[in-house]
């Protein structure tokens, strides 16, 4: 079972990285959260009956863990505040522009609430409203309502930053 579980995590660890980068600024926090999510996935793996997709299950556990994590107030003077430095830009031709957009996106997203971050993350990951509703526990209609509100909020935030 452990072998099977590790293979699933290895193949889909990008999901966990994205959740960690969405919710944590400092690298130490991201590493802690990554480990916590892996531990919680392992804990819930025996009861995962494959009724939903593996990625949906991982998003559910990852977001639940990120939103309900307890952070002590640690002072880190040298913390890395740009989590998206952990990501590389796949498109080298537009690297400068994309990097600027990434920073803009990060600054805007950092001002969203925990719930808003979860919904926007799932939206950016091309999850259907049906899946977002299943993961968050709200209806599809209200996913749409919330998505519209988040888009408006992001537009205002990004316009302010530019």
């Amino acid at each position: 079972m452990e072998r099977e579980f590790l293979q699933i995590i290895r193949e889909n660890q990008g999901i966990i990285h994205k959740v960690c980068n969405m919710y944590c600024d400092a690298e130490e926090d991201r590493n802690d959260l990554f480990q916590e999510i892996v531990a919680q996935l392992w804990k819930s793996y025996p009861s995962f009956r494959k009724e939903s997709k593996v990625t949906t299950w991982m998003y559910r556990v990852g977001l639940n863990t990120a939103i309900t994590s307890f952070k002590k107030n640690k002072r880190r003077p040298d913390q890395n505040l740009l989590p998206f430095e952990n990501f590389e830009v796949a498109d080298e031709n537009h690297e400068a522009e994309t990097e600027e957009n990434i920073k803009l996106l990060h600054r805007a997203v950092a001002q969203l609430t925990g719930i808003e971050k979860s919904i926007i993350l799932l939206f950016l990951e091309n999850k259907k409203y049906e899946d977002i509703a299943e993961i968050t526990g709200i209806t599809q209609n209200y996913v749409r309502v919330k998505m519209n509100r988040i888009k408006k909020k992001l537009k205002i935030l990004m316009d302010k930053e530019e």
């Binding site: 660890q13 990285h17 590389e88 957009n101 990434i102 996106l105 950016l124 990951e125």
Partner: peptide, 18 residues
């Protein structure tokens, strides 16, 4: 950046850390 560029920007990211 316009909202429609959000998904595009996001899609161009891939994790360094594997």
């Amino acid at each position: 950046m316009e909202l429609k560029d959000l998904k595009e920007t996001w899609a161009r990211l891939s994790s360094r850390k594997e």
